[in-house]
Amino acid sequence: MKIVVLVKEVPDMESKFKIIGDAKIDESQIAFKMNDFDEYAVEAALQLKEKFGGEVVILSSGPERVTKEVRQAFAMGADWGIHVSDPQIDEGDNYVVAGALVKAIESVGGVDLVLTGVQAEDDQAGLTGVFAADMLNFAHCTNVVKIEVGGDQKALTINRELEGGLNEVLEMAMPAVLTIQSGINQPRYPTLPGIMKAKKKRLDLKKAADLGISALGEAGSKTKFHKMYFPVSEHKAEIIQGDAKAAAKTLVDKLRNEAKVI
């Protein structure tokens, strides 16, 4: 089974965010990591490979930095990868990025499954997997929490998460795109030998021109970014000051005598 996993690098959300000119975050202050949901997707792919054989290909679009996350997936056990590296793609919206990722998937050839995260923690769009499926003309399913492969290795039985603790169980044929929800598995930690091997694994670099992409940057996008800002809340909490001990004491007092909830 040939599986491509889309891996995105995102800021660690506990980083200190600063916005430059209403337009972008100050990346110099940010620690980057693999999108959480994508870690579950990598693990899901590795488990399928262990059961059915084949290969796991990691695909990521972004600046040079993202090779760190690709190598992390290699260290977990993925076989090889493609780094789509072109600022003209990164400047585009989800439509442009999905289009570029699809070209890279097509360049792999004979792909049975494409796994993505449910959403990226930074843009929270939840669009890339669905776009990619449509562009590839593959069947798809989002919010996947269980994958079973049928005997002939062409049929899938999938649980799609629904609201209120429900799952929809559905069947479809490969090739398919699945967007993977957290909790589907317990992602493994890279081992030391894994990390050593990861350094030597094949990582192809592709520019927009190599992939023959015409929709690029802002011009190729179907959406337009206006601005970004920190939310202003009308309901901002009353922040209780003091060291932990003093604050805790004040809090308990307020819960007892002001809010009267304990």
Partner: peptide, 25 residues
């Protein structure tokens, strides 16, 4: 973002704040 919907907030390490709350209770 949780502070944008909370009534009361403490900015601090929960491993210090919660034991202190236990004590204050």
């Amino acid at each position: 973002p949780i502070f944008n919907i909370a009534t009361y907030g403490i900015v601090g390490d929960l491993f210090e704040v919660i034991p202190a709350m236990m004590e204050a209770l």
